[in-house]
């Protein structure tokens, strides 16, 4: 059924005398509390081991990208070891990857930069098409897949994507793809370990962010001081 038809048929239904009562949730007479109910975040399966969206080759490539965007050095472990690719795999299998919040009705017309993306693809589709396009480019330019390039070749390619100078074909907006990859890798590095990345809260320790702490009344008076707070996470799901 066309979406356009939905309302008119709903209205036609409503005109019939046999219409069932609209089953709205009506709340009255106090707050509708239920014992033991808390709104925990939906987590993509699998929580440990296995893949939720990526193929093994895609996971390896996401890990290699994460290791160039966030390389291991004396400040922290690298993006791959921190679990960024696992995080992204789980995110792409869930509502984020499916574009559950996006307005995706047509027509899809390219607009001005001020009008934002008009891509018809979901984030999961953009990753899949994007990784394939990057590997196809590497095949043409280096006769190797991305994961087999050396670090400086990988960096060169990422710089070209960042600057929008790399042509990845008709279906891939290179700059948008780069921005999405970078954003998702950073999310995996900095989000609570609950989501599969940020192993041992490595990123939080790197910058001195205390994580899921909820009360600083005892510390707000210590202005301008290095506080050395041991961070806390909701659940460590990287182990």
């Amino acid at each position: 059924m066309q979406r356009r038809d939905f309302l008119s048929s709903a209205l036609a239904l409503a005109a019939a005398s046999t219409l069932p009562a609209a089953r709205a949730d009506v709340v009255s007479g106090g707050q509708p509390w239920e014992p033991g109910k808390a709104s925990v975040p939906p987590l993509a399966a699998p929580r440990q081991g296995g893949l939720a969206f990526f193929t093994q080759a895609e996971l390896d490539m996401a890990g290699a990208l994460a290791d160039r965007l966030i390389p291991a050095d004396d400040l922290s472990i690298g993006g791959k070891e921190a679990g960024c690719a696992v995080f992204i795999d789980r995110q792409l299998a869930g509502d984020y990857g499916k574009g559950a919040t996006l307005y995706r009705l047509g027509r899809f017309v390219k607009g001005t930069p001020e009008q934002g993306t008009q891509s018809p693809f979901t984030p999961a589709e953009r990753w899949r098409k994007g990784l394939a396009a990057i590997d196809a480019y590497c095949g043409r330019a280096y006769s190797k897949p991305f994961v087999q390039l050396d670090a400086s070749q990988q960096d060169d390619l990422l710089h070209a994507m960042e600057n929008g100078t790399l042509d990845l074909g008709r279906e891939v907006e290179t700059k948008e793809l780069f921005e999405q990859i970078l954003a998702n890798v950073r999310e995996g590095f900095f989000a609570d370990p609950l989501y599969g990345g940020n192993k041992n809260m490595a990123s939080w320790k790197m910058i001195g962010f205390p994580g899921a702490r909820y009360d600083f009344r005892d510390l707000i008076g210590k202005k301008g001081q290095k506080l050395q707070i041991i961070p806390t996470s909701l659940v460590d799901n990287t182990l």
Partner: peptide, 28 residues
């Protein structure tokens, strides 16, 4: 409500609330 939906054990989650904006009206 506060007790069920954003107690401290649920609220301290940047990805869920600030990045994915779970309690905002989605463009969809």
């Amino acid at each position: 409500d506060t007790a069920s939906d954003f107690p401290p054990s649920v609220d301290t989650d940047e990805l869920r609330w600030a990045t994915r904006k779970e309690i905002l009206q989605p463009p969809k």
